[in-house]
Amino acid sequence: MFEARLVNSSTFRKVLDAIKDLLNEASFDCSENGIQLQAMDSSHVSLVSLNLKSDGFDKFRCDRNLTMGMNLTSLGKVFKCSGADDTVTMKAQDYADTVTFMFESKKQDKISDYEMKLMNLDQEHLGIPDTEFSCIIKMPSIEFARIIRDLSQFGESIVISCTKEGVKFSAQGDIGTGNVKLAQTHNFDKEEESVTIDLQEPVALTFACQYLNSFTKATPLSNQVKLSMCENVPLVVEYQIPELGHLRFYLAPKIEE
């Protein structure tokens, strides 16, 4: 028996919104530790990794490890039926081929349930090695989304270069060039507005705008985003989901020919 209850169903809805551009379907691996998802986009260029801890749920029970393959368009339809303040309870029997989502309104005056068919997905799992990153940038997630959106107008790629002075985002194309520099700023009163850089050595890497833009769909999940970079290693774009876990995206740098 699997049962997970989340008072803020909107958090799960935000997770779905964040990954549905990249993934059509995905397997949710449920265990006593929580719910994990790891999947590559259809072009096998980027990797999505979601971890929702069991103790972040308001109720969590998983008697037997369970992999639930879901069509994310269908799952999106189910969550469209929920209210913004609803509580969601997900339930599945052992070896079931369906999962049930029950939505309860705050006042408990409306309860709806939707049963969705599960899929058998043959998904590859990748082993992600521990990496000593050259630099780790933490910045407001809205600012990151804005910069990626703005610079995407100039070219198909963005260079992210990081030194002890700050981080620079650059793009160039037919119409010209764009550069955005951010200095480290520490706002002790408003931690979420800070830009912090943990630098081992300067690094400059090039990434495809298309994927960076997709990653920023996770902006509503978190005030801050963490970018981890190292030469010849995929970029990690991480959004912490308060009290529940994290959503990470991995993207390989473009290599100069």
Partner: peptide, 14 residues
């Protein structure tokens, strides 16, 4: 534009 490297080139298939 340089080709985008597949992520499987970096992480091991388990």
């Amino acid at each position: 534009e340089n080709p985008q490297q597949p992520i499987v080139n970096y992480f091991k298939n388990l």
